[in-house]
Simulated scan of single mutants.
Amino acid sequence: MSVTAANTLTSRWAAASDGPAVFSGAGVYPLLSTLAGVAAGPARDELLAVAPSPLPLPPGFAAGVWTRHDLPLTPGWDPGTRLSGDPAADQRRLDAWAAERTGGRITALPVAVDGDTGLVLASALSVVTEWVQPFGDSTMTPAAGPWSGRPLPALFRKHTAADALEPLRHVDGVTLLTVAGTGDIDVVLALGTDAATPGSVLSTAIDGRHRATPSTGGPGVTVQDVDSATPEPELVVSLPSFDATAHHDLLALDRLFGLRTAARDGTFPGISPVDLAVSSARQQAVASFTALGFQAATVTALAAFPLAYHPLTTRKLRVTVTFDRPFGFLAVHRRTGLVLVAGWVATP
């Protein structure tokens, strides 16, 4: 249930924001679930509607909790670590936590600590995988679309085997290509039609992965009969390498994340008898797709303030998949199906 709910949050975020460059619903969900467990009234109802049950921690995930040094705490609430009361020192400590948990890919917590901060909840997610079959370097010059006529550095891979076409799927007008990585991580590339919006492509990929069917048709796919010494089909993949980075203000989509009442009225009696309201909710995310593998990291943080404180013998099939216009990507935990990181490549 929790994996489905987390993936639903990621899909709705993709649709609402029309395909951010890189983002992680899986990084936000555990924080919302934690708040739901200590909230009351409408704030609890809104949070439970988004995060109804705890999420088993995905690989590469870390969480932290910090509370104001003089904030009264509800019995049974684990304060994690107390803030010192020196905002500058606390900020350095939290930034160091973010850098350590993401291998230096993100060097600062995306929320600021000041003298009014009563609570900080943070998550860090690091995704690192190497391709089972690496790519080689190549070039591409798209003939049409937003990248038309631009010579681009590209990644190229060719695979010939009886099951070579197995990674290629299609669902609701979107081509899906699964790139297998180590450590139980797959990266799914998603290409829609020229007219499709980034949000619709990503939400279709997230929601439709499990019902996608094998197909040699769809956006970006061409099929040829070629001369060959062996009859096994061949899959050729070409795409640009990419780096993506993004900053997100979650309170700009407060209804999506169930934070509307939490930011306005607070009420988290499970933390403190003092009313707390969410004052800041942000995520920083980065991702990189190279010839050898995929790396991504996100840091998500919620801050709250206390209201009271102010070759030629036969024929074979060759299928080529070319990502030569904007496309989406998902990093998926293979065993559970949890979408860890998703994004949209608008510029190569």
Results as ranks from 00 to 15, higher is better:
293 G>W: 02
90 D>S: 04
209 R>A: 08
330 L>Q: 09
290 T>D: 11
16 A>V: 11
246 A>V: 09
186 D>P: 03
229 A>E: 15
313 T>F: 14
342 A>T: 06
209 R>K: 12
104 G>I: 11
135 F>P: 00
250 L>Q: 02
247 H>Q: 14
77 W>K: 12
287 A>W: 01
97 W>P: 03
347 T>A: 11
65 V>M: 09
99 A>E: 13
252 A>N: 10
244 A>Y: 02
194 D>Y: 12
299 V>H: 00
39 A>G: 07
18 D>E: 13
161 A>N: 12
250 L>D: 01
21 A>T: 14
242 F>M: 11
41 G>V: 12
142 P>T: 08
342 A>Y: 06
100 E>L: 13
86 D>V: 08
68 R>L: 07
141 T>C: 03
46 E>D: 10
217 G>I: 10
122 A>M: 07
292 L>F: 12
72 P>F: 09
11 S>R: 09
178 T>L: 08
282 R>E: 12
348 P>I: 00
147 W>C: 00
190 A>P: 04
236 V>R: 07
23 F>T: 13
311 P>A: 15
195 A>F: 11
206 I>G: 02
117 T>S: 11
85 G>L: 10
221 V>Y: 00
258 G>E: 04
221 V>H: 02
116 D>M: 12
338 L>C: 02
46 E>N: 04
123 S>Q: 08
35 L>S: 06
127 V>R: 03
118 G>W: 02
99 A>P: 08
195 A>N: 13
181 G>D: 04
159 H>K: 10
167 P>T: 09
22 V>P: 02
288 S>E: 10
273 P>I: 08
310 H>G: 15
274 V>T: 15
231 P>L: 06
263 A>L: 09
298 T>K: 04
186 D>S: 08
209 R>N: 05
268 F>E: 01
71 L>D: 01
168 L>A: 02
158 K>A: 15
125 L>Q: 03
219 P>W: 05
176 L>V: 06
45 D>W: 08
33 S>F: 05
305 F>Q: 14
296 A>C: 08
246 A>M: 11
11 S>Y: 07
121 L>T: 03
300 T>K: 02
196 A>T: 07
296 A>L: 05
59 P>A: 12
233 P>E: 12
73 L>C: 10
196 A>I: 05
210 H>M: 11
268 F>G: 01
275 D>Y: 12
164 A>M: 01
95 D>S: 10
98 A>D: 05
75 P>F: 14
23 F>H: 13
313 T>L: 15
89 A>N: 08
278 V>G: 00
274 V>F: 11
44 R>W: 05
230 T>G: 13
335 R>Y: 03
168 L>Y: 04
45 D>Y: 09
55 L>E: 06
61 F>M: 15
327 F>D: 02
96 A>E: 15
226 V>H: 01
147 W>K: 00
139 T>A: 11
23 F>D: 07
145 G>V: 09
3 V>K: 07
299 V>E: 00
47 L>W: 06
318 R>L: 07
126 S>E: 12
216 T>V: 15
231 P>G: 04
252 A>C: 07
243 D>L: 12
102 T>F: 02
75 P>H: 14
74 T>V: 09
33 S>H: 10
289 F>K: 01
336 T>N: 13
104 G>Y: 05
285 A>C: 15
238 S>M: 15
174 V>Q: 04
170 H>K: 10
6 A>P: 01
119 L>T: 01
27 G>L: 03
309 Y>C: 09
